[in-house]
Write a protein that binds this DNA or RNA. Structure first.
Lengths: 133, 133
DNA sequence: CAGAATCCTGCCTGATACTG
DNA sequence: CAGTATCAGGCAGGATTCTG
């Protein structure tokens, strides 16, 4: 692990400085993943194919506008596949593309880190507030 | 890898739904990492300790305000350690805490994914624009 | 059912000026 | 050098209404 970490430490720096803001792959990816709903939708679609209404019910506090827009962005980036069925009433299915599925593993690792250290982060926040906040 | 992926797929879903928005560790972490500058600063501090002015020069397009604020947030979350030296003129050093260093590996993995698939994402965007954008 | 269009608001962010 | 304070703009995101 120390080997992996030592390598990635340098990589983070070098990969940022080789690209301006517009073409930086890190910003391109984290900019999208960092928004409010993308990772949640990717997680749901990683589980199985969902219809639009299923996604909306699974994420009670998302607005219709944001669900539509986030799905469109993910589709645009080639992470999500959208299939329309010409039924009455119409139905639309969303699923991950192979590219989208390949993101599940790195994303899962980050989520594991988040859950593992969430308690420590919350404690640090409390300590900060009572001390100098 | 199929084992890791299969496990994380379910995890993403379950870890989201067990927490409301305020306590969800995924949103807590990605909300911070997803901002414009956090990952860049973490990458720089993963390389070595930096002074305030060094960080500012290393990130030419960050405003003083955002650098201060991002550093404060990272310090608040226990990822970054801030040390003031009572010299004239004053100097302040920033470095990663052990918690912050533990984030370098998962973050590096995500960055590797980003760089590896950045080309595919850009191609998907071009295809989307010319097709239905 | 699955969206598109519109309006509105808050916060993120940058620019500028000032301080210890 | 390392910040803080203040102001201004733009965009993310929500609520509502309308359509095929």
């Amino acid at each position: 692990m120390s080997d992996v970490q030592a390598r990635t430490v340098g990589d983070i720096r070098s990969r940022y400085e080789s690209f301006d803001a517009g073409n930086c792959p890190v910003r391109d990816v984290l900019g999208q993943l960092g928004d409010k709903w993308s990772t949640l939708i990717i997680g749901l679609l990683g589980e199985r194919t969902h219809r639009f209404g299923e996604l909306r019910r699974s994420i009670p506090d998302i607005s219709q506008r944001m669900l539509t827009q986030t799905l469109k962005d993910l589709q645009r980036d080639g992470l999500v596949d959208r299939t329309v069925f010409a039924t009455v009433p119409p139905s639309v299915e969303y699923k991950l593309t192979p590219l989208g599925r390949s993101l599940l593993s790195p994303l899962g690792i980050l989520i594991e880190w988040a859950e593992m250290h969430h308690g420590a982060i919350r404690l640090a926040r409390q300590a900060y507030e009572s001390g100098e906040g």
